[in-house]
Amino acid sequence: MAMVKTENLIHDYVIRDEEGNVSGKVRAVDGVNLEVKPGQFIAVLGHNGSGKSTLAKHLNALLFPTGGAVWIDGMKTDDPDQLWNIRQEAGMIFQNPDNQIIGQVVEEDVGFGPENMGVPTKEIWERVEEALKTVGMWEYRKKSPNRLSGGQKQRVSIAGVIAMHPKYIIMDEPTAMLDPGGRREVIRAARALNDVEKITIILITHNMEEAIYADHIFVMAKGKIALQGTPHQVFSRVDEMKALHLDVPVATMVAHKLREHGLNIPEGILTREELGEALGLES
């Protein structure tokens, strides 16, 4: 069974004038069909306003379809009886590290989700310990979140989600507000969760270097999926990506330009190692 499946998903935001009357609609998601299999690492790319954040909120039943449908692990998101099961199975990490930490102490924040789920006290402690150790924040358990760096805060947020034992985690631009060190921390944690814990990851990002590890990439534009495929497939379409105002990894760009100058190297190169190989250098 698919972990996540959307069928012709549509989402309209209703615009109201000052009297509260409906004055218009904006279609943020426009007929999206996608399927994510258990254990996959998925990247969703797209510029601001492409509808990717709206899509993300559908995958955790934080928004409900205007048209079409979303299934999470076989549960339809607009079924009210399944709401809390869906939110337990689907963890979510948001962009701003400050605005998603509820607890005043790291361990209390991580325990927040399990508390809401009604997990017995003893098990909450086990889950908190396991989750904090998974993201390498165990030694900070007694600290105030305000004293942590951005990357550490995001790792605490990830631990807060892991403690709910989700089947998959949606990360909505988790690195956008972090410095390079913080970005590396968060991406490393996300990849480890996918590799070791086999948790399905859906990473929404602007940073193309973060997407090259994905099993599959969806590129959103104007509420639709404009491109999709493996990183090699997606990033081999440099001109289309540029037209969508998106970057490609630097190695991809170098290779693409070399091709334009007549060098016979394949499209879709992602890393410097692949570039070296394509240039016929010994490794």
Binding site: N60, T121, W125
Partner: peptide, 15 residues
């Protein structure tokens, strides 16, 4: 909400 908060009903305590 994403972390299943739905008021005090059925909530357990970590501490």
């Amino acid at each position: 909400e994403a972390r299943c908060y739905h008021g005090g009903e059925g909530r357990t305590r970590m501490k």
